[in-house]
Design a protein around this nucleic acid. Structure first.
Length: 969
RNA sequence: GGGCGAGUGGCGGAAUUGGCAGACGCGCAGGAUUCAGGUUCCUGUGUCCGCAAGGACAUGGGGGUUCAAGUCCCCCCUCGCCCACCA
C-alpha cells in the first residue's frame, strides 16, 4: 500500500520547502501543517460539521438552524481503492467543500457527507492480488482514504459516512430489492404497484395472465399453482430470465451491456467477453423509459449529459407492421421509423438468432412457386447450400459467431446474409418479399426484424446491391441525386396511395391505414434494455431470495433481513473450464449457508439460497438517501427527514451533485430508476434524486513512454537538451488523465509535505473552471503558496508572530475594492467559479500588501472580511487568522461578508473614447453624466480633438458608463 | 459515419454576455535583501516599429453582420469527449 498522507506527528525535517534562514513566523509548509492538524482536530472535537436533521436521532441542535434554508451538497460515492488518492481525485471533493462551507456561512443548513462504495469487482481483485480477504482490504482502504480526505480539511458530517459493505447498509439494499421484486408495473396507471394487486386482477379476470410463462394464453383458473407463480414472476419488476449475457471468464462474472466496450471487452480490465445464455436476474428499467426520458426536463444538468441519457434510452417512434408469411401460418412483425416507405419494401430481414428463422427455414426449398422469381445462387451463401435454407442459415450463423465484435462493426464491412427459403406479403400492396437472415439486423432492438427499403435506407441499399435485390424509391430525391439511399424529405412517389405527400403526412396516413386494416399500428421502441442485475461474484450484496423444491424464487420477509454475506476462504471465481464452462458463483461453495430451513408461512421447509450477488451499482443507487438518516433501523429513511432535505426545485432532489462525466449514463440512470420506484411506492417524496448535476473536469498530466512504448514513471523523467530522458534513454512525452495506467500520478502527500493542504486546495480551485479538464503543474503551485504567505504576512509579523492590524478605518479606495471583491466573490462562489473568486481575493490582498509596504498596518476593516472570504477555500489558515484576530469561535458559521451597496456605486466612472471604433483615450466622468456631457467631454480630450480636427463626424455613439465612439465620414 | 464541446501571450486561464482583449497566477527579465542560493520582496513583461511620445498588428483560418465582434451568422481546419449497422 502506498504511503498514507498523515499530518499526525508531522516530521519537520523532511519539509523541503522550508527555509532555514526564514523568519520564525513565516507561513511555510511547516507552519501550514502544524495549524492544519490543529484545526482538523478542533473541528472533530467540536463536532463543527455535525448537521442536524429536523427530527430523529440526528436532530440535536436543529432548533438553532430551523430558520435556515436547507442545502444538500453531494459528491459521487467514492470507491476506496487500494492505491490511495492522487491529486486528481479530490478535485470535486474540494469543490463541494468550498461550496458547502460558503453556503454554510451564507446562512444555509448544509448537509455534506462522504461514504464509501466498497463492494464490487475491484475490491475483490485487489484482495486476490494481496492474498487477503476483501473485508480486510476494504476496511484498510477505507481507513486510508478517510485519513487522506481528513488531511484535506473537508467539512463532512462524519456520522453519515456509510459504506455499502456495512451490514446495516446492505440490509436496506436487500430491502429495496424486495420492494422491486414484489412490484409490477401497471402501464395504465403508469406506476409500480404491489404484486398482490396483480394477482387480484388475474383472479377476478380483470386482467389476462399473459406473458412468456403462459404462451398458450390460458386463463388463470386453468393454470396450476406452479404455473400461476411462473406467470406472476414474469410480471415482476425484478424477474429471472434466460438471456444471452456478457460472460467474462477472466473476471468470472456476467457484465451488463454497459460494462462491455465497443471492442467486445470488459470496461474493467479489458478482458474478452463472450455471449452465452444464462439464467439471470433482470430489473425492468424499460418500464420507466418514458419517465426517465421526460423527467430529464425537470433537471438542471449539463446538456451533454442529458443528451447522453436520451441517446441511451433511445426512444424512436414509428410503426410496427405485420407481414404474413406465404408458406406457413406465421406473421413477421417489424418495427420501422419510416412507415411511409412501406411501398418501397423489397425484402424482409430477420436477425440471425430470430426464433422465426428456425420455424420458417425449410430443410429443402421447394423452388419458385407461382409468382415467385427464381433465386440467384448468391442468396444461399455457398454452392453446397443452394436450395437448402436450413444448411445456409446454420452455416451463416456459425460465420457470424466467429466474427469478433470489432470485425462485425467495422464500418466498411460488406453486408452479408442468406435467403431462408420463405416469402412474406407486403400488407399494403400484396408484393411478394423474400426473407433473409442477416447480421446487420440486431435481435436486441425493435422486433429483431425489419422491412428493407433500399431506396430510403443506406444499409438496405448496401445489402440490396450486394445480393442483387430490387431497389424502389418512394420519396422523390433531388434531380441530381443518384447511387445511394435518399433519406431526405420530398414528395412520395410510386405508391399510388401516398404520392405527393411529405414524409410526416405520409407516415400518418400509413399508420391510419395499418390500424384500420389490422396490419400494424403506431409504435414506440427503445434502445434501453432491462438491467442485468446479477453477478457471479463474492464481494457483493447477497439476494434476499431462496429457492424451494420447485425451483421458483421466493422472497424472504423483511424480518429475515439482512442476509449476511458468509465468510469464505476461497472467493475466487472458478475459471478452470474456460469460456465454455458454466460460471459458478463463489457463494455456491458456502454449502452450509446455501442450504437453509425456513418457515416462509407454510411451516419449516428446506430452501436453497440464491448464490448470485448484486452488481456494484446497487449500493450506489441509493446512498444519498441513507446519508439523510444513517442509523434508522425501521425505515430506509424517515419520511420527514427525506422531505426536509430532498424537497426543492422542480422534481426535487439533491441540490448539488458533483462527479465525473463517466457516470453520465450508468450510475445516474440506475439511481434515477431506483428513486422513481421508491417514489412510486411512497418511500421518498421526490420524483428525482439529483436536481442539479455538475461534472468536474479531470486533472491531466504529462506522461512518458519509453522506446518500447511502455509508460514509465513520470516523476523519474528528466528534461534536458530539449528532450526527455530516463536512465539515459530517450522517452516521448504525452498528455493524459492522471492515474495509474499512465504512471503519471502525483500524490497529495507530497503536496501537503511541501506546501500544506490549504495551498493544494487553493491551487486545485485556481487552475481553471471546475468543470474543465486542466493540466497539473507542480511548478505552478508556488503562486498560491506565495499568496497565502502574503495574506499571513499582512496580518502576522513574521519575526514576532504578533498580529498587526490597524483599527483605524481603511482609505476610501481600499474599502471600495473590498466591497467590489465581496460582491464578485459571492457571485463567483454561488456559481462555482472559484478560480475567478481567488483572483478577486488576490487583488484585494495585493492592495493590502501595498498598504503595508507604504508603512501602514492592514486595516482590520479589510482583513476580517478577507479572512472570512478565504475561509471556504483555505479553512485552516482562515480559522487560525480569525482566532488570532481575537475571535474565540470557529468561523465555519460566521456570516459571509455582504457588500455595502453604497460602496459599489461609483461617483465617477472611466469611459473610453473611440474614433472609428479604436480606443484613443479615456476620461473620468461623473457617473450620472448625460449623453451630451459625455460627448462634449470626449470631444475636449486633446488626443481625440486632434483626430477630429478637420474631419466630419458622421455619427456619435454614446454608451453611458462605457464609451463614446466618433464615426468619421 | 453521427452527436456534442473547445481553439485567446512562452504556459494555466480572465473578459460585466456585443463595448478598453490578456484580470489573477506561473514563467521570464531587471533590481533589492542575502556569505550564497530562492521557496523572500519590488518593478517590468502580447507581438512588431520607435530613444520617446506614439503607431501598427493581434483571440485556429477565411468571409459576413455592426459605430463596435474573442463574443452573433456562414464556410473551412485542428483537438477532445460520447455514440456507433438502433431500422
Amino acid at each position: 500500500m502506498d504511503a498514507v498522507a498523515t499530518l499526525d506527528g508531522a516530521v519537520d525535517d523532511d519539509v523541503t520547502h522550508t527555509t532555514t534562514g526564514a523568519p520564525p513566523h513565516r507561513y511555510d509548509a511547516r507552519l501550514a501543517r502544524r495549524l492544519e492538524t490543529k484545526w482538523q482536530d478542533y473541528w472533530e472535537d467540536h463536532r463543527t460539521f455535525w448537521v442536524p436533521n429536523p427530527s430523529g436521532p440526528l436532530s440535536g441542535g436543529f432548533a438553532e438552524v430551523a430558520d435556515r434554508p436547507k442545502l444538500y451538497v453531494l459528491d459521487m460515492f467514492p470507491y476506496p481503492s487500494g492505491a490511495g488518492l492522487h491529486v486528481g481525485h479530490p478535485l470535486g471533493y474540494i469543490g463541494t467543500d468550498v461550496y458547502a462551507r460558503f453556503q454554510r456561512m451564507a446562512g444555509r443548513n448544509v448537509l455534506h457527507a462522504m461514504g464509501y462504495d466498497a463492494f464490487g469487482l475491484p475490491a475483490e481483485q485487489y484482495a486476490l492480488q494481496t492474498g487477503q480477504h476483501p473485508r480486510v482490504t476494504t476496511e484498510q482502504n477505507i481507513a486510508n482514504m478517510r485519513r487522506q480526505l481528513r488531511a484535506l480539511g473537508l467539512g463532512h458530517d462524519p456520522r453519515r459516512g456509510v459504506a455499502t459493505t456495512d451490514l446495516h447498509y446492505y440490509r436496506w439494499t436487500q430491502w429495496i430489492f424486495l420492494q422491486i421484486f414484489n412490484r409490477w408495473y401497471d402501464d395504465d396507471a403508469d406506476r409500480a404497484r404491489p404484486i398482490a394487486e396483480l394477482i387480484d386482477q388475474f383472479e377476478s379476470g380483470a386482467r389476462a395472465p399473459a406473458g412468456p410463462a403462459n404462451p398458450e394464453g390460458r386463463t388463470w383458473r386453468d393454470l396450476d399453482e406452479r404455473a400461476q407463480r411462473r406467470v406472476v414472476d414474469a410480471w415482476r419488476l425484478a424477474y429471472r430470465e434466460m438471456a444471452p449475457v456478457n460472460w467474462s471468464p477472466a473476471l468470472g462474472t456476467v457484465l451488463a451491456n454497459e460494462e462491455v466496450n465497443a471492442e467486445g471487452r470488459s470496461e474493467r480490465g479489458n478482458h474478452p467477453v463472450y455471449r452465452r445464455p444464462l439464467e439471470q436476474w433482470m430489473l425492468r428499467i424499460t418500464k420507466y423509459a418514458d419517465r426517465l426520458l421526460a423527467d430529464l426536463d425537470l433537471l438542471t444538468w449539463p446538456e451533454p449529459i442529458k443528451v447522453m441519457q436520451r441517446n441511451w434510452i433511445g426512444r424512436s417512434t414509428g410503426a410496427s407492421i405485420r407481414f404474413p408469411v406465404t408458406s406457413r401460418d406465421e406473421v413477421i412483425e417489424v418495427f420501422t421509423t419510416r412507415p411511409d416507405t412501406v411501398f418501397g419494401a423489397t425484402y424482409l430481414v430477420l436477425a440471425p438468432e430470430h426464433p422465426l428463422v428456425d420455424v420458417l427455414a425449410p430443410e429443402a426449398w421447394a423452388g419458385p412457386q407461382a409468382g415467385e422469381p427464381d433465386v440467384p445462387a448468391s442468396w444461399w451463401g455457398g454452392a453446397d447450400a443452394v436450395g437448402r435454407p436450413r444448411t445456409a442459415v446454420g452455416r451463416y450463423r456459425e460465420e457470424v459467431s466467429r466474427c469478433t465484435e470489432l470485425e462485425r462493426q467495422a464500418e466498411d464491412r460488406e453486408k452479408t446474409g442468406v435467403f431462408i427459403g420463405a416469402y412474406a406479403r407486403n400488407p399494403v400492396n400484396g408484393a411478394l418479399l423474400p426473407i433473409f437472415a442477416a447480421d446487420y439486423v440486431l435481435m436486441g432492438y425493435g422486433t429483431g426484424a425489419i422491412m428493407a427499403v433500399p431506396g430510403e435506407d443506406q444499409r438496405d441499399w448496401d445489402f440490396a446491391t450486394a445480393l442483387g435485390l430490387p431497389i424502389l424509391r418512394t420519396v422523390q430525391p433531388p434531380a441530381s441525386f443518384d447511387g445511394e439511399a435518399y433519406t431526405g424529405d420530398g414528395p412520395a412517389i410510386n405508391s399510388g396511395f401516398l404520392d405527393g405527400l411529405a414524409i410526416a403526412d405520409a407516415k400518418q396516413r400509413v399508420i391510419e391505414w395499418l390500424e384500420a386494416h389490422d396490419a400494424g399500428a403506431g409504435a414506440t421502441t427503445y434502445k434501453l434494455r432491462d438491467w442485468l442485475f446479477s453477478r457471479q461474484r463474492y464481494w457483493g450484496e447477497p439476494f434476499p431470495i431462496v429457492y424451494g423444491d420447485d425451483g421458483l424464487p421466493r422472497a424472504l420477509p423483511d424480518s429475515m433481513l439482512p442476509v449476511e454475506l458468509p465468510e469464505l476462504d476461497e472467493f475466487e471465481p472458478r475459471v478452470d473450464g474456460g469460456a465454455d464452462a458454466p460460471p459458478e458463483p463463489p457463494l455456491a461453495r458456502a454449502e452450509q449457508w446455501v442450504e437453509v430451513t425456513l418457515d416462509l408461512g407454510d411451516g419449516p421447509q428446506r430452501y436453497q439460497r440464491e448464490t448470485n450477488t448484486m452488481p456494484q451499482w446497487a449500493g450506489s443507487c441509493w446512498y444519498y438517501l441513507r446519508y439523510l438518516d444513517p442509523t434508522n433501523e425501521t425505515h430506509l429513511v424517515d419520511p420527514a427527514v427525506d422531505r426536509y432535505w430532498m424537497t426543492g426545485e422542480a422534481g426535487g432532489g439533491v441540490d448539488l451533485y458533483v462527479g465525473g462525466v463517466e457516470h453520465a449514463v450508468l450510475h445516474l440512470l440506475y439511481a434515477r430508476f431506483w428513486h422513481k420506484i421508491l417514489f412510486d411506492l411512497g418511500y421518498v417524496s421526490t420524483e428525482e434524486p439529483f436536481h442539479r448535476l455538475f461534472n468536474q473536469g479531470t486533472i491531466e498530466a504529462t506522461a512518458f513512454r519509453d522506446t518500447r512504448g511502455f509508460y514509465v514513471e513520470a516523476s523519474t523523467v528528466e528534461e534536458r537538451e530539449g528532450g526527455f530522458w530516463l536512465d539515459g534513454e530517450p522517452v516521448t512525452r504525452e498528455f493524459g488523465k492522471m492515474g495509474k495506467s499512465l504512471r503519471n500520478a502525483v500524490s497529495p502527500d507530497d503536496i501537503y509535505r511541501d506546501y500544506g493542504a490549504d495551498t493544494l486546495r487553493l491551487y486545485e480551485m485556481f487552475m481553471g473552471p471546475l468543470d474543465a479538464s486542466r493540466p497539473w503543474s507542480t511548478a505552478d503551485i508556488i503562486g498560491m503558496h506565495r499568496f497565502l504567505q502574503r495574506v499571513w504576512r499582512n496580518v502576522v509579523d513574521e519575526e514576532s508572530g504578533a498580529v498587526r492590524v490597524a483599527d483605524a478605518p481603511a482609505d476610501v479606495e481600499t474599502r471600495r475594492l473590498l466591497h467590489r471583491a465581496i460582491a464578485a466573490v459571492r457571485d463567483d462562489m454561488t456559481q462555482l467559479k472559484f478560480n475567478t473568486a481567488i483572483a478577486r481575493l488576490t487583488e484585494l490582498n495585493n492592495r493590502l500588501t501595498q498598504v503595508v509596504a507604504d508603512g501602514g498596518a492592514a486595516p482590520r476593516e479589510i482583513v476580517e472580511p478577507l479572512v472570512l472570504m478565504l475561509a471556504p477555500l483555505t479553512p485552516h489558515l482562515a480559522e487560525e487568522l480569525w482566532s488570532r484576530l481575537g475571535h474565540p469561535e470557529s468561523l465555519a458559521y460566521m456570516p459571509f461578508p455582504e457588500a455595502d451597496a453604497a460602496e459599489l456605486v461609483d461617483a465617477t466612472v472611466e469611459i473610453v473614447v473611440q474614433v472609428d471604433g479604436k480606443a484613443r483615450g479615456r476620461l473620468q466622468v461623473p457617473a450620472a453624466a448625460s449623453d451630451g456631457d459625455l460627448e462634449a467631454a470626449a470631444r475636449a480630450e486633446p488626443r481625440v480633438a486632434a483626430l477630429l480636427a478637420d474631419r466630419t463626424v458622421r455619427r456619435v455613439v454614446v454608451v453611458p458608463g462605457r464609451l463614446v465612439n466618433f464615426v468619421l465620414g
